[in-house]
Computed example of a mutant assay.
Amino acid sequence: MARPSAATCRGTIIALLVLAGTSSAQLSTDFYSYSCPGVFDAVKPVVQSAIAMEQRMGASIVRLFFHDCFVQGCDASLLLDDTPSFQGEKMATPNNGSVRGFEVIDAIKSAVERVCPSVVSCADILAIAARDSVVILGGPSWDVKVGRRDSRTASFNGANNNIPPPTSGLANLTSLFAAQGLSQTDMVALSGSHTIGQARCTNFRAHVYNDTNIDGAFASTRQSGCPSTSGSGDNNLAPLDLQTPTVFENDYYKNLVSKKGLLHSDQELFNGGATDAQVQSYVSSQSTFFADFVAGMIKMGDIMPLTGSNGEIRNNCRRIN
């Protein structure tokens, strides 16, 4: 048998290196199997404690993950604080006074650092904590893909432009999700995260006072805690899910069919359009909703992760190393 030429050997080695680089750049469920096998056990008790103190916190953590992934991908850019020389995303319109739970992420990071210092990214911590929050509140579980690294940058403009506002119509919602590689099916399923948590009056005022695709009695109830004048009671809260805002199930979709969606963007999912049938399917089958929600969360977690030598593993989730 003829021996391969030196050029052939070099080509084989280069091809193997390329393949190795490609595989290392992929997220996987066992990324920390050797470097930090205790990471999942370190995260969950902190999330459980935070939700036990305030059940709303589970929804807040899920929302942090969503708002992070829609800007530069799932890279923990949302967690970065502003400094005199750095503009982060926390003061952008969709986030300012709205996103919360940063102290919980800090506590999780501290717990993980005690187990394996400088190994686990803040981006992965956010993905794991979002899954744990859903499970603790009664929702489905899934194996979280990890291996993300943390961004050294943030995008204030991206936060303002990429995150769907609560005033969105169906076409705008579909377009903003599509820009992240998420389908309309993903969008309707992921919107089901609104089966937990609360919203501020400023985000649902126009819907309960001006829209016609809303149950009258429900609108009156929400108006009682949300004055019609802008600036008055803006931060007053109402549950996104009328019945069980601290339990993850399919009541959110039942509310939409009854025209009791709290946000304009919620009710747009059941308003005589292309997504009505999907909403109805989730009303009929919670397991179908759970399956699609899990698929959507995994898909969202794959949005433009930093891997390999890109980004960094932050020592403090609020600032670049």
Rank of each mutant, 00 (worst) to 15 (best):
T83F: 11
P84D: 05
F86T: 10
G88V: 03
E89V: 09
K90Q: 13
K90G: 01
M91V: 08
P94F: 10
G97P: 12
G97H: 09
V99M: 10
V99R: 09
G101F: 02
E103D: 10
K109F: 04
S110I: 12
A111L: 11
A111Y: 06
E113I: 01
E113A: 05
R114S: 14
V115P: 01
V115D: 11
S121P: 01
A123E: 08
L126V: 14
A127P: 01
V134E: 05
V135E: 08
I136E: 08
L137N: 02
L137D: 00
G139P: 10
P140M: 08
W142G: 04
K145F: 15
K145I: 12
G147K: 01
G147S: 07
G147V: 08
D150Q: 11
T153M: 11
A154K: 00
A159G: 06
A159M: 01
N160S: 10
N160K: 14
N161R: 14
T167P: 07
L170R: 07
A171I: 05
N172V: 12
N172Q: 15
N172Y: 07
L173Q: 13
L176S: 05
A178E: 09
A179Y: 11
Q180W: 14
G181V: 04
S183F: 07
S183N: 14
T185I: 07
D186G: 03
V188W: 06
S191R: 03
G197C: 11
G197E: 05
Q198T: 00
A199V: 08
A199N: 08
C201H: 10
R205E: 03
R205Y: 03
A206K: 14
V208Y: 00
